[in-house]
Amino acid sequence: MDVGSRIRYFRKLYNKTLKEISLDTGLSISFISNIEKGIKKCSLENLEVICSAIGITLSEFFNDNLPPEIEELISIAKNLENDKLKTLLTVARSLKAEQKESK
Rank of each mutant, 00 (worst) to 15 (best):
P67R: 13
T57I: 03
G38F: 06
T57F: 09
T17W: 00
F61C: 02
M1L: 02
M1E: 01
S33V: 08
F61D: 02
L80S: 06
N63M: 15
F31I: 03
K40W: 00
L47E: 03
E72V: 14
L47C: 03
D24G: 14
R8L: 09
Y9T: 02
G26M: 01
I50P: 04
S28A: 07
Q99R: 15
N82V: 12
C42G: 05
A92D: 01
E72S: 15
L85Q: 11
S102C: 07
K78G: 14
T17V: 08
D2K: 06
I29H: 07
S28H: 02
N79V: 11
S22C: 00
P67S: 12
K12Q: 12
E101Q: 10
N34Q: 14
I39S: 02
I39Y: 06
K96C: 07
E81A: 15
S28P: 01
Y14C: 08
L13M: 06
Y9H: 03
F31V: 03
E36N: 07
S59C: 07
T17D: 02
N65M: 13
K84P: 07
C42N: 04
I32R: 06
V49T: 13
D64Y: 09
G38C: 03
N63R: 12
F10W: 07
S28N: 05
S75F: 09
K40S: 10
I39V: 13
I76C: 10
K12Y: 07
T57L: 02
E48K: 12
R6H: 00
E45R: 14
E72W: 13
A97S: 10
N15D: 10
I7Y: 04
